[in-house]
Design a protein around this nucleic acid. Structure first.
Lengths: 225, 225
DNA sequence: ATATTGTAGATTGGATACAATTATGCAAAC
DNA sequence: GTTTGCATAATTGTATCCAATCTACAATAT
């Protein structure tokens, strides 16, 4: 038998098509709030931006619509979706139900690496001065806490809710200059995880999301958005 | 002034494109289990079925992939997704968390019409002799109970979970000749709604989903699927 | 001045055609 | 009999072109 020759296997992932790239780029721009609500996305314009035809652009847009990030009307075009205060409230209600469950399941499985990563994002969030980075670090923190739960479907759903409200979260983080209370709440949740107290972590997460949701809608209301 | 001539306004909804029609048809066939797991869906073949080009077919497939109903690989094609027992278990865990919450919110808002509709579907389910109809009636029943909750996002999520597991639910309803225990559980949930007892309806729903999930995975295991 | 109609441009949905990549069948070599 | 190499077919990804429809504005009628 020949010596077992091991070739290094690069994980290229599914080779990305133009449609995939465009989808990612548009999704990113939308959830970051770089495109105004209600702003139309013209197939032609975007196709030229990426130097491709309209076909992959249309496919990307259909996926964005399925994800709820844009609304499309025949012969009129696609516009960036906007959420009413009620819709935002409902999404936070959903998160307040799902995320505590996930963290409760995750705590017993949480690796030291994940805890360290979460602490890193928590500190980085507190230290970050660029408002545009707060959104990412906030999301990274929560993701680090959830991922060891090994509940892929739950995580997919949570990602979806994050995508939908992220532009508003970012806006409010900006308006409130970072929401210092969030930092303390993050640390408290993380401490509960480190102490391996699933129920406590779940309850603190529930309160955190509840607070964040109410604060967010409150600020939006005050600023007439 | 001329007499006010009122033209009847038909609500055509968003005018359906070929892609929409194909998406609906494929989704339906997949969740009903009319296409085998892992079976490839060829763009060309399906385009011919509908007498269209591959463009709208591709768009439909991309949406199916976003919904999690198919898997796509570049230059290889799209295959109907199959779920592992673990994945099915997780989805039922998710439903057992979300659906009780929704019914609890719905009970106080539930109209007499909705209660009547639910009773109708419940009876129809019990009386139905055609196994192929059980899946629909089961879903109609639950939908009737949830819709007055006025929580669109929750309902969308529930719909998604239903889409993903429906083919398995149908299979097991078939194998078990209708699961008589489900009928009693349905009636108990409905009675709790009629009595306007939100917490009871929620708890019964949780138990019902839990049972159904465990029964489903158990049957699948026994039948090596 | 206001309402209606007509027309040109803009925009999307889809068909056809072609390029890139993978799967398949078959002959040759081991 | 099994494996390897290559030519061919099958299949997907994208570009280009056309049809259907909407929008905006000018022209006309009231």
């Amino acid at each position: 038998m020949a010596t077992a020759l091991k070739l290094k296997a690069f994980d290229l992932g599914k080779q990305a098509s133009a449609g995939d790239v465009i989808y990612d780029a548009l999704r990113d721009a939308i959830i970051r709030g770089e495109i105004e609500e209600g702003e139309p996305l013209r197939q032609d314009t975007i196709a030229q931006m990426f130097n491709v035809s309209r076909i992959p652009v249309r496919e990307a847009m259909q996926r964005l619509e399925a994800q709820g990030l844009v609304l499309s009307e025949r012969y009129k075009g696609v516009v960036v979706a906007s959420l009413s205060h009620d819709q935002i409230t409902e999404i936070f209600q959903f998160r307040a139900l799902v995320e505590p469950t996930v963290i409760e399941l995750a705590v017993p499985l949480m690796s030291e690496e994940s805890l360290k990563a979460a602490q890193h994002y928590c500190d980085a969030f507190a230290a970050e001065t660029d408002p545009l980075r707060w959104g990412d670090l906030n999301r990274d923190f929560h993701t680090a806490l959830y991922k060891d739960s090994d509940k892929k479907f739950f995580l997919t759903m949570i990602d979806k809710t994050n995508d939908l409200v992220e532009r508003y979260v970012r806006l409010v983080l900006y308006l409130t200059q970072g929401m210092r209370s969030a930092i303390e709440e993050h640390q408290a949740i993380l401490d509960a995880c480190k102490a391996r107290k699933p129920e406590l972590a779940a309850e603190l997460t529930r309160q955190h999301i509840d607070q964040a949701g109410k604060a967010l809608v409150g600020y939006l209301r005050d600023h007439h958005r």
